[in-house]
């Protein structure tokens, strides 16, 4: 089964997400800040990254996504945040926010699983 990395500074959301994914057979690894998140991905090369936007800084998630792409990681990224509307960003596959899909928090287990499955499938097909 696939390996999924969640990078989020909120331990409660991290744990809830982990439980949902683990219960469905995924292996989950987590980090609570961008630096640890990058090292985690580098060390474990997961199949999918779930990435929060506002961590220590309001735009940590954007910069981390850019860094992943810059460093050659083609891993699909599912970005999620509570403030997409007020930030006024156009999410999706762009150079500014190079992520594969986007979710607005709160995310129900059903929606999270559906998105994760879809992204993993797409990425496998591309491979």
């Amino acid at each position: 089964m696939a390996l999924i990395a969640i990078i989020d500074d909120d331990p409660d959301i991290l744990d809830a997400g982990s439980i949902v994914l683990q219960s469905n057979g995924y292996t989950v690894i987590t980090a609570t800040n961008p630096k640890d998140g990058f090292n985690l991905v580098k060390a474990n090369n997961p199949d999918l990254i779930i990435l929060d936007v506002m961590m220590i800084e309001a735009d940590d998630g954007f910069f981390l996504a850019q860094k992943f792409r810059r460093e050659g990681f083609k891993t699909p990224i599912l970005m999620y945040t509570s403030v997409s509307k007020t930030l006024g960003f156009q999410f999706g596959k762009s150079d500014i926010v190079p992520v594969d899909d986007f979710l607005e928090k709160p995310v129900t287990p059903e929606v999270l699983l559906e998105k994760v499955e879809k992204l993993l499938k797409e990425h496998t097909e591309v491979k």
Partner: peptide, 22 residues
């Protein structure tokens, strides 16, 4: 400021809903 406030208000709601959904 508004986007900060909404983030800070929504995060505990998202966390709580996450737990309750489970």
């Amino acid at each position: 400021f508004v986007s900060m406030v909404s983030h800070e208000l929504k995060s505990p709601i998202a966390a709580t809903l996450g737990f309750l959904d489970i």
